[in-house]
Design a protein around this nucleic acid. Structure first.
Lengths: 268, 268
DNA sequence: GTTCGACTCGTACAGTGTTCGATTCCACTC
DNA sequence: GAGTGGAATCGAACACTGTACGAGTCGAAC
């Protein structure tokens, strides 16, 4: 269970799809690419729970266990599939426009890709994104922030901060959406259905109840879209400010931890 | 499956633990609080996969199916458990310090709570956080940003942006950590084990390989900590900038979408 | 003593990921 | 063409999952 040794793998404690050569399949029939493609189709259509090896096999017109010849695990299959999603993310070419526009357009595209593949929400926390597409994406973003004027590790920090924000806002949205789909309610109906629970939680907190009553009528979808934009703007503003600060004070190297953070529980 | 009607529930299409009264248990024996407590202990000790109703029952010294009297199903149990985690998050009192310090200290505490309960990563994408503790937390944050000077929905936006960022950076860190735990490698060893895969992905992208070679020696943990700090500072800077802007231009109401964003694929 | 609800639990069902061994199939050598 | 060896497929089986169901236990009220 903890580490398994497969015929085609080198013996090692750590194993991931990416550290092992894929089977070079020479015959017609099942194929790693085809398996991944069909898995994604199944996931998009019916969600993560619907993806079982047996169902996937049926979809491929083959036995369930045949898949195990091409893919070690269900987990590894999911790694492959996740990286495929990373492959859908696009970053504008560095020359094309300003870094702000690039970052922003990437953020919006990522948001939409996540909406297109809602099931990734369950994978992001489980499977580290270390596939080739993930790495490639990261380097494109790094190039963007290099072009913007960030230096050293700050480029990586900026990139991963952007990704973090986008996935962080979008994930709960998706869990909200899938819940809507399961219950067949419109978002405002769902909102209304939750109202009593909210009010119960707000009981004993005057002002809170009033506040929620005030915003009850607002359309949920547009609110969320505005929320996304709000946070994105903040983040880009923050990045820009840091850039300007570094430009005016001509640089004590790269990794300035930022203007003396307040004392706090500590990093670790 | 899609909607079930339990003896103690009102009939409705949407059902969550929070929209239903809990069983008021009058006898010694199983208890919702006790179940949740033991479930959390099991989760913390052995992770999400280890939580099965049978194992939980064994831990409680009762039959597995007895649990179903107090909790409708496993999903609802997870809702309860997730909200318990939300209950661990703390926001400093509004009067205590500046909003920046409050936000920052909340961010760090959240990060640590997530590390303490790594399994939440798998729940966040699945289960919407609408329990009483989640709501209470949200209102504390909203109060903080109200005190800071944000108005209307901007308070919610700021709060959820902060949460989004923290969970967004921390989630991948956790998936990284659990992978370390499973393989029993130190983070730098794991990094080294992944190196070949990274290099393969970087092949054909000159400069990229050089870049990764350059940073190979850097300690992963401290890098991540710096990354967290970097993004948090950016975000708070961005919030502060928006605050100042609003203060100087004496306000066309609250929901200013922000200085004409670049044309893009569209919100939808 | 009876009755009724609260509560517990054993059994059963359909489904899961995965292992193993048998089987098929194809490209190659003699 | 016969034979061989590896590539690939697959059926059966195992240990496990969540949970529906119905029978059973218990304590208090009448």
């Amino acid at each position: 269970m903890y580490y398994r040794i497969y015929a085609w793998s080198v013996k090692q404690h750590f194993s991931s799809v990416w550290t092992r050569e894929p089977r070079t399949t020479k015959s017609p029939g099942l194929d790693r690419a085809q398996i991944v493609r069909e898995a994604m189709a199944l996931l998009d259509a019916e969600g993560l729970d619907a993806l079982s090896m047996r169902r996937l096999g049926a979809r491929l017109g083959s036995g369930a266990t045949s898949i195990y010849w091409h893919v070690a695990n269900k987990d590894e299959l999911l790694e492959l599939v996740l990286d495929e999603v990373y492959g859908e993310l696009t970053v504008p070419d560095v020359q094309e426009t300003t870094w702000r526009n690039s970052a922003s357009s990437f953020a919006y595209s990522m948001r939409q890709v996540l909406f297109r593949h809602p099931w990734v929400t369950n994978l992001i926390g489980t499977i580290p994104g270390i596939g080739p597409n993930a790495i490639l994406l990261m380097t494109r973003l790094v190039a963007t922030f290099d072009h913007a004027g960030f230096r050293g590790l700050d480029q990586d920090y900026a990139a991963s901060t952007l990704i973090a924000y986008v996935s962080g806002v979008t994930l709960p949205e998706i869990s909200w959406r899938t819940m809507m789909e399961r219950t067949g309610l419109e978002s405002n109906e769902l909102n209304a259905a939750l109202q009593p629970a909210v009010e119960k939680a707000a009981a004993g907190h005057p002002g809170l109840a009033a506040r929620y009553a005030e915003f009850r009528e607002i359309d949920v979808e547009t609110t969320r879209a505005l929320n996304f934009e709000f946070g994105l703007t903040c983040l880009l503003d923050g990045l820009e400010a840091r850039l300007n600060r570094a430009a005016s004070a001509p640089a004590p190297a790269s990794a300035d931890p930022g203007a003396t953070p307040p004392s706090r529980p500590g990093i670790h």
